[in-house]
Design a protein around this nucleic acid. Structure first.
Length: 165
DNA sequence: CGAGTTTGACCGGCGC
DNA sequence: GCGCCGGTCAAACTCG
């Protein structure tokens, strides 16, 4: 399933904090605020979860003061998958990603270079992200003890998969 | 020059 | 019927 792919991808990019299922038609993920939305921060441009997304709109919604961004999958013209990205109401450090639909094509997993991830911005930035990441994880885990099991399960199964590569 | 982003306008659904 | 709101479109702009 793509769930795991996304999870692993985000972990690789050091942006993933927590993931929760439970949206009706789509999936919801909460990401640590990283370079996700700002291509000019010098990291990867559009590819961050294995797919290529093209932004087609942005809106400020009522329930959340932060603008919500709308993305379509631009990797395959026939792919109608969309995703919405907005900051969490609870925690502005988190990005909530809502996926709608299912990809009808392979992901772009084979990112040409793992080296493109390599430099977030600077070692300082990485440290900052790491700190915030740990903090966020601790907080969310404290709040959601049940989540530990799911997360550990997902991570461990993916680690095993990755070991094969 | 092409691909992607920004941003204001537009449209349709829904509640009153 | 009207207004609000979320979602989408498209022209202008930016960047590599």
């Amino acid at each position: 399933m793509q769930d795991h792919e996304l999870l692993v991808n985000n972990l690789n990019k050091r942006k993933f904090v927590e993931c929760e299922e439970g949206n009706t038609s789509g999936r919801t993920e909460t990401l640590h605020q990283g370079s996700l939305k700002r291509p000019n921060e010098g990291v990867t441009r559009v590819v961050k979860d294995g797919y290529q997304w093209r932004k087609y709109g942005q809106k400020v919604t009522r329930d959340n003061p932060s603008p919500r961004a709308y993305y379509k999958c631009s990797f395959a013209p026939s792919c109608t998958v969309k995703k919405k990205v907005q900051k969490s109401v609870d925690d502005a450090h988190l990005l909530v990603v809502i996926y709608e639909g299912v990809h009808n094509h392979e992901s772009m997993e084979k990112e040409p270079d793992d080296t493109s991830n390599r430099r977030l911005n600077s070692p300082m930035e990485m440290l900052k992200y790491d700190e915030a990441l740990v903090e966020q994880m601790a907080n969310s885990l404290r709040r959601n003890p049940d989540f530990i099991e799911d997360l550990a399960d997902a991570i461990s199964s993916n680690i095993l998969e990755y070991d094969l590569f």
